[in-house]
Nucleic acid binder design. Structure first.
Lengths: 235, 235
DNA sequence: CGCACGCTTGACTTCTCTCAAACGCAGTGG
DNA sequence: CCACTGCGTTTGAGAGAAGTCAAGCGTGCG
């Protein structure tokens, strides 16, 4: 019952004009008058860990801006396994493909409780049609996604399992700059790195024993960045 | 001397109005009047196998439409190895990132002699600013690239080397529908699938011995699609 | 003719997967 | 309060896959 259910709490209608993180979201460049073009409500939602924003294959009616938390985009393989294709952090947009008229290409699952804004497709389309100021930002979001996808491939899918796990830690570190980072369930780690859950677990356990990472709380780590970088590069 | 050199022949100024494959390129929806907005020449080039369109890190001045042939986008890893991130076929656009104001994120190398159109950044930017008919197509190209990137990850980077090679054959088959396909150098195959050159070679050689694929000419194959699909799914 | 380069093959090592079991923690119910 | 249970993590042992290093082929080109 917990899996696949949408566990979203409606927080109210978003006031984009006053958005605290507007500088890094899709609407960054909009000007006062542009907001009058928004004729459908943009809702703000809180989604718990384990909740989903949308399912692969659904006809898309909205994209989502991630305001906080962490969201995984997964695709399911023929053999039933999942593959995590990208992690979305605050500022990213999930479901861009609906703006190109396609159904959702992934299932978006929340890994760390998230605040998101639901952007109805029509709103974005209208803005895109009527104000050029959205173009650049929209292009930036596409470009960001693509760069992330390529990075994912070159960083997290090459080298030994050891190197990949080390690089994943370094990636997660970027999120919360302060030398601490929250890791994911071992199954997710495996689905990101194309290794089995066991290999993921063994490797993380090894890092803990070596003192390269230290678990300060459940799945929360402080890391030895230098040593991780050595391992990431191949010792 | 052969590597890294741009081996391009200038074929003349492209006449986009009369383009034979316009229905599948960026300018698909443009109307008569829109072409007057093109104030810089769009050149058509022929690039030989081994030639490059651009190098990773270069400040981008143009994107390229692939009219024929096959182009690989590669990124070089810290250890000097290359990683092939995408293959571009006719209709794809290389170097979209320059339209978002970024330097090239890959090196674009021609694998099979290609005809390309060079689209100066300013031309695309002006069109994008002044005619909404480009928006949709531009978004489609971004969307295509991203879908391709995700597919790459899930199809060609999961499962055993055997499965990956089989899936690569099936991918290449889509290109030239008629049951025949041209394979790539073994090193490239390896760089696509994240396996070593030797493993790529062994596996292809195996397929040949099993009769799953038949080499009809240098690196040109006819394939047994059904059996390949079985292998791709894991026997 | 011989050299270079890419493909193939072999033998050996190392890594990762597989299958299985044990562990630890949190929530449930007696 | 404590035993029970479910779930994710950890660990082990053995099989199998891929990497490594090295050598041999074959073809095209100078």
């Amino acid at each position: 019952m917990r899996k696949g259910q949408i566990e979203a709490a409606w927080l109210g209608r978003a006031e984009c004009r006053d958005c605290g993180i507007r500088h890094l979201v899709l609407f960054a460049d909009l000007q006062e008058a542009d907001f009058d073009l928004i004729h459908l409500p943009i809702e703000e939602l809180r989604v718990e860990t384990g909740g989903t924003l949308y399912q692969e294959g659904d006809a898309g009616t909205a994209a989502f801006t991630i305001r906080s938390g962490l969201v995984k985009l997964v695709q399911y393989l023929a053999d039933g396994n999942q593959r995590i294709v990208r992690l979305l952090r605050p500022g990213s947009v999930a479901g861009l493909e609906v703006l190109a008229g396609h159904p959702y290409e992934h299932t978006a699952v929340v890994l760390q409780e998230a605040l998101v804004c639901r952007l109805p497709r029509e709103v974005v389309e209208r803005l895109n049609r009527e104000t050029p100021r959205l173009h650049r930002q929209l292009m930036n979001k596409w470009s960001d996604s693509l760069r992330l996808a390529d990075e994912w491939l070159t960083d997290l899918n090459t080298g030994t399992a050891r190197q990949r796990v080390a690089r994943l830690f370094l990636h997660l570190l970027q999120v919360s700059g302060d030398g601490r980072c929250r890791l994911l369930g071992r199954e997710d780690v495996g689905a990101i790195l194309s290794v089995t859950t066991e290999t993921a677990s063994r490797t993380v356990a090894d890092f803990k024993r070596m003192g390269v990472v230290t678990e300060v709380a459940g799945n929360s780590f402080t890391v030895d960045r230098d040593r991780l970088e050595d391992i990431a590069a191949g010792e």
